[in-house]
Simulated assay, not measured.
Amino acid sequence: MRIEDLTHHGLGRTGDDLIPRVLPGEEVALTDTGPRIITPSPDRVSPPCKHFKSCGGCAMQHARDDFVVDWKTSIVTKSLRAQGLDAPIKAIVTSPTHSRRRAKFSGRRTKKGAMVGFHAKGSDTVIAVPDCILVTPALTGCLPALEELTIMACSRKGEIALTVTDTANGPDIHVTTDKDLTPQLRIELAAFAQNNHLSRLVWNDEPVVMLNPPTQDFGGTVVTPPPGAFLQATNHGEETLLKAVNSITQDASRIIDLFAGCGTFSLPLARRAEIHAVEGEAAMLYALDHGWRNGQNLKRVTTETRDLFRRPLEPDELHGYDAAVIDPPRAGAAAQIATLARSDIETIAMVSCNPVTFARDAKTLTEAGFIMPWVQPVDQFRWSPHVELVAPFTRK
């Protein structure tokens, strides 16, 4: 079979078949163990990570970096064109290796101890990844401790999820398991956290141990996000997005931040503008507010807990703001974008992790008279099919 092109998920298309880890122009033969490359593409390279063949965490390590850049840029371009939009696409900014500050590992008990890693592609088999080149060194350094924790938290035949975040005060670990939290286990977990210098240990939805606040730095303001709170995948990517948002809103003195989270944009922007932060999760806004109250040299920041999908801010509520920042989930923010389009706000900085819903929402704004002068792709999820975007929208 000859590979015609790649889907936006990184799968090779041959007509009726979708094949992983191939490249356009290659001739392949399908075998019981997967595709066998007969004629390789000149864009094919040896994967930089030794776990790539067995691990399902990455999709595109077999391709040259510039090929991946062009492919991800084409995903953005095609998404815009599908909505009849055209704008200059800036050069994609890619986060370096060893920069992902959060990872969700899987843990299973074995006869000799435990196995912690990522799933093999399309399988429930757990693959150990001690030399993963995506995550920060602090996260790979946690793997022996996570194996110890798996023995404590996992039943003999079950599997647990271990979400680990790299923080200034040590790893923040969130365990998802069906094992009951007994008084004896609480004592053991406290000792485990102390011995492994954790900042916080959360068991399902219950914080069990917090030795030091698991803080993140948002533009010089320290914030302690609640368990499982949204964070940009890398510090590098966050800084890139913030630089663009700051540039787009530089002339604004009153800014409304929609889907504000824990203050990724609100708190850095508060160094020069008054901010109203709106978010559906009260715990994240509490963390934002606490960070602001303990920060220095910040202008006024107010918060509002509100479900922006069911109850978007109406045009009269948006009156008086010079600019809006909006960073919705993958589903986009069709309802909130519709009211922004009808408002008198002159400038919008839109951040998105989904080019398809970004293009849909961008069309609504351009049809209402906004201009989109450029789009900046940001690749925080290196070697994956994901790409993020940030773009300005200004009134004609």
Rank of each mutant, 00 (worst) to 15 (best):
I133Q: 15
A161N: 08
A277E: 04
V325M: 10
K112F: 02
M210K: 13
K53S: 14
G332H: 10
A283R: 15
R36F: 00
T339K: 00
I38V: 14
L18S: 12
Q336D: 02
D379N: 13
L340G: 08
V164T: 14
F105C: 02
G158R: 13
Q61M: 11
I127P: 13
R330G: 11
A191R: 14
Q83W: 10
G113A: 06
R81V: 09
M1C: 03
A391M: 13
D289P: 00
G56V: 03
P47Y: 09
A193I: 04
I151Q: 13
V301M: 07
R101Q: 11
L340V: 09
V116S: 03
L288W: 09
G219H: 10
T339M: 02
A349G: 08
T177S: 14
I173F: 06
A287H: 02
S343A: 11
Q184Y: 01
R101H: 03
L198G: 01
P130S: 04
T234W: 05
T366A: 10
P42M: 06
S123C: 12
L30R: 03
Q61F: 03
L201F: 03
V116C: 09
R186F: 01
G15M: 09
V387A: 12
P183V: 01
P329M: 10
V22W: 00
M350A: 13
W383M: 11
M115Y: 01
M210A: 14
M152G: 02
S343C: 03
H236R: 09
D379W: 07
D32N: 04
A161V: 02
I256A: 00
K363W: 12
P24S: 05
G220F: 12
N246G: 11
S41F: 01
V390T: 15
T240V: 13
A138E: 14
G158C: 10
